[in-house]
Amino acid sequence: MNRTLEILEQLIRFDTVSANSNLKLVSWVEAFLKDCGFKVQRIPSPCGEKAGLYAERGPAGPGILLSAHTDVVPVAGQEWTRDPFRLTQEDERLYGRGTTDMKGYVASVLAVAERASQAQLSEPLKIALSYDEEVGCVGIREMLDRLAPMLGKPRACFVGEPTEMQVAVGHKGKAALRATCHGQNGHSALAPEFVNALHLATDFITELRALQDDLARTGAHDAAYSVPYTTVHVGKLTGGLALNIVPDQAELLFEYRHLAADDPDDILNRIRSAAERVSQQYRTRWSEARIEVDQYNAYPGLDTEVASPVICHAQKLARRNDTTKVAFGTEAGFFDRLGIPTIVCGPGSMEGQGHKPDEYLSLSQLNACDAMMDRILEDLRQ
């Protein structure tokens, strides 16, 4: 536990907010793992300002994969009462940006890697660290072509997002979209003679709300989620230059988070059809009226089958008898799509501490994670 805390203290000092480079942290971790006898491969981002890592130690074979991201969410605009980039221990709480999401888990992974350097392994311990998870799982997607051949086929993947050490077997997939609405400029005194782009946008929002209502009523349901159906959400609407000018363009950003049983391609097709219906209503007045829908980001969901052996194995290692599904997205779906049995299990509470000012991780949660790592290490020695 003391060693894990020493490592966590160092990790928190690196300001790896997603807008910043993570290369200093990556260099430190890379050297750490090499000192532990791991084979380490750095995977640079396309821009070269960030990188992920893949590390492995032990004989060839399936092994177990431990997965985490290195970036954290911003602290700007939040009221912290402590330095967010300095680990502060008060009673049973460890304060600092990323303690829960998810440098506490990374510290536990590195601590077990150090213990593994003194162990005789019968299977490999595999570690994957990514970047830019907090902005839509961008990093793992960019890494995957190079990462997948290195991974092989681990018999289990533990993604260490905060679940309070429960074994999470599912989360929704997500797609982020942009709708650009095209209308006509004109003087507001003659507004009815022009197609107002904001009118297209608001009519399109009405269509999205109707789609949401239909998905809630007739779509798939999964009672394991607090919101048990696929959701459609509009987060931002912009348009117009001045009050006395009819806007010729408006933009809205929206998303859908889908259950595994709902086909994301079908949802996207329904969205595009709604955009076309709205556009056609305005083309009788102006033939160029249109709404362009662009999907600019997406990540897959996770829905590990109840009968999958990885669940029982994870429960044994985590000392849990229950399972859960989480509301937030993770990188787990990417590993699942590679055919790697995957669950999510890590210390801390996303609902209680994730992304909040004065983020903290309890010592008991970190201790439980360290204990799970010890059992994983013993499992690899058998």
Rank of each mutant, 00 (worst) to 15 (best):
Q10N: 13
Q10Y: 01
I12H: 01
R13A: 14
S18F: 04
K24Q: 14
V26E: 07
W28H: 13
W28Y: 13
E30D: 13
A31N: 12
A31E: 12
L33K: 04
G37M: 14
F38R: 00
V40F: 04
P44K: 09
K50M: 03
K50D: 02
Y54A: 07
G61L: 01
I64D: 00
D71S: 13
A76L: 05
G77I: 02
G77V: 02
D83A: 12
D83L: 08
P84D: 01
E90S: 12
G96K: 02
M102A: 06
S108L: 10
A113H: 01
E114W: 07
E114G: 05
S117Q: 14
A119N: 05
Q120T: 15
L121D: 07
S122V: 09
P124F: 10
Y131P: 03
V138G: 03
E142T: 04
M143G: 02
D145L: 06
P149A: 03
K153Q: 15
Q166G: 04
V167M: 01
A168L: 06
Q184G: 10
S188R: 13
A189R: 14
A189S: 15
A201M: 04
D203C: 09
D203N: 12
T206Y: 12
A210C: 09
L215W: 07
A216V: 07
R217H: 11
G219V: 05
H221F: 09
H221S: 11
D222A: 12
A224H: 10
V232T: 00
V232Q: 00
H233F: 10
G239Y: 00
G239Q: 01
L243C: 07
I245A: 14
V246P: 03
P247T: 11
P247N: 12
P247E: 11
F254V: 07
L259A: 06
L259H: 03
A261D: 12
D263A: 04
D263P: 09
D265R: 11
E276K: 11
V278P: 00
S279H: 05
W286K: 01
W286E: 01
I291F: 11
P300L: 05
A307C: 10
A307P: 03
C312S: 12
C312D: 14
H313W: 13
K316G: 05
K316M: 09
N321V: 05
V326K: 00
A327G: 15
F328W: 13
F335M: 06
R337S: 13
I343C: 05
C345T: 05
C345R: 02
P347A: 07
M350S: 08
G352A: 10
H355E: 12
K356F: 08
S362M: 10
A368T: 07
C369L: 07
D374G: 14
I376A: 08
L377P: 02
E378R: 09
E378W: 02
L380N: 02
R381P: 01
